[in-house]
Design a protein around this nucleic acid. Sequence first.
RNA 1: CGGGACGUGGCGCAGCCUGGUAGCGCGCUUGCUUGGGGUGCAAGAGGUCGUGGGUUCAAAUCCCGCCGUCCCGACCA
Length: 485
Amino acid sequence: MAESKITPRAENFARWYQDVIAQAELAEPAEVVKGCMVIRPNGYAIWERLQAELDRRFKETGHVNAYFPLLIPESFLKREAEHVEGFSPELAVVTIAGGEPLEERYVIRPTSETIIGHFYSRWIKSWRDLPLLINQWANVLRWELRTRLFLRTTEFLWQEGHTAHATEAEALQETRRMLDVYADVAENVMAMPVIRGLKTRAERFAGAVRSFCIEAMMQNGLALQAGTSHELGQNFAKAFEIRFQNQAGELEYVWQTSWGVSTRLIGGLIMVHSDDRGLVLPPKLAAVQGVFVPIYRNEEERAAVLAKTNELAQALRGAGISVQVDNREGTTPGAKFYHWEQRGIPLLIELGPRDLAAGNVVVRRRDSTQKQVHPAAALVAVAQNALRQMQADLLETARRRMEENTMLANSLEEVKKILEPATAEKGGGKFVMAHVKDDPACDARLKEFKASVRCIPLEDRYDGPGRCIITGEQTPHRVVIAKAY
RNA sequence: CGGGACGUGGCGCAGCCUGGUAGCGCGCUUGCUUGGGGUGCAAGAGGUCGUGGGUUCAAAUCCCGCCGUCCCGACCA
């Protein structure tokens, strides 16, 4: 905490981001393994809230949780050609165990398609076994060259859903359904607007037929892939011999999907909402939605103020709002205000002798600089309303920012010009909508100036055919181009 | 792996150029004080200066090696 009071983001966005994490006590770089992180209780509470929201939706869609091994025989990875090619550069491999070199090496899972495929081949025999809808909460490890807390760490926490279906149509439907679940959580829980889309062939998951994603815009205009849902076709089914007997008695390969979101979401949350005073948590994600700061000068006032504070806190809890009373001694109210602001608590509620005498409370929303005085008797309704409104406002603000920073371009030069000032600084980045063919050669051209096709949006507002700005060929869609994390 | 910077109490840094046996801010501990936006004062605890070697009467400081970290690029949820 101390002296660093959050670097103004305009000065250095990367530094600002790290400061928010530090001030809010969310995470630290691990000291033992390069590029890993220690998620502190404040950060983990956010993850638990996300888990709860996701799990609830998974249950509604009929998924069950299971767990598969951390170590995967290297030969499993090699069975799907594209998959191993895509992941081998970033694998950590176990070569020695029990004091001796292993005859077969194990990789630490970068994702679990292969080992789950291995078991699915044993579990699935009949059409009656389908669909198989399993989710796993796990840690995975990818030896990335560069890391950034939450956004790209060597080890990260995620959920990975792995499903098997009898038909291609059903698998596609599943892929889209889970993409919608992700968009729902991003927008309605995290208040982070996203664009649903399809990845280009160059960007799709190694081993997938098609990859769908949700893309979000950070406050500096850079893009963040916030979740993916893959249509795996029969690629892994063929590699792992996952077959079932259909109702006609014929043996068929299953159609699979996989989908995941990770602790990266927390990074996105920070970069979308937080400000120079620290973290900003949307009410639905805050484990603690409100904190009372009692104010008093002497024992008599202390007793009266604390009594009233506790009474109001109970009333809020009774209404389903999670609140805490900051009754620490030896810390001044001002210090407490800063403390909770940095940690993103949505509502700050002051109660002092003046309020007590007038029957009031002072309420401030984290996303506002204004204090508002309300009758204490109305606090429950005021708090409920404020939390609801704050949730809506955060989404609206972020959505407006994304729309205002999205522009159309009709040539590669225009794209380049729009993205040129894009640096790590606030407002530098943009989303550019342009016609680009789904062709690896086009992806390569954009890469020349560090941009990429983030997705081919599913929403139709930017839709419509046109000529590719690179090849001149007719393409059916405008795509989202941006610089990304 | 290329290009840059940096390793000094828990955190952030100064000291290094011009060698003389380590200092500041924050945090922490104790006491008083204060309390409606980071109270103030006082007294404390805490460091073999990343590491190995060299030069020297003497090295945080100069020289060489190694290790590690961060930033920029290639890779990527």
